[in-house]
């Protein structure tokens, strides 16, 4: 893998991360924000794979597996919270959850 390919992959990873962050900012639905979070996490996953390939050692893929487990755990807790919030607040809009302020 050549240096230019690496930078290319890095740009794609950064793009993925950026879309994820934008997704959290733009959409008000809790579900959509969780999905956007997943997209954001996939950015570094790609970056690790590319870096590992560039340097030719397996540590990158090791880190990728760790990132996957985190994404899974994050989503699980997120969905549980989503269900609990929908029952108590009656809406899946993240602005309904903005009582703490000032």
């Amino acid at each position: 893998m050549t240096g230019t390919a690496l930078t290319g992959m890095m740009i794609v990873a950064a793009g993925l991360f950026a879309t994820g962050v934008f997704g959290v900012l733009a959409r008000r639905g809790i579900l959509f924000q969780l999905i956007a979070l997943e997209v954001a996490l996939s950015g570094p996953a790609l970056a690790f794979i590319a870096a590992g390939a560039y340097h030719g050692d397996a540590e990158g893929q090791g880190m990728f597996v760790l990132v996957l487990t985190l994404a899974a755990a994050e989503v699980a807790v997120g969905l549980a919270l989503f269900l609990r919030i929908r029952r108590s607040k009656g809406s899946d809009d993240s602005d309904a959850v903005s009582g703490l302020k000032g």
């Binding site: 962050v21 602005d95 903005s98 009582g99 703490l100």
Partner: peptide, 17 residues
């Protein structure tokens, strides 16, 4: 100043971004 703490998730993550 204390009004910038709006409490909405979107604004707080904007701080992060």
């Amino acid at each position: 100043v204390h009004r910038i703490q709006t409490g909405r998730v979107r604004d707080q993550s904007l701080g992060l971004a």
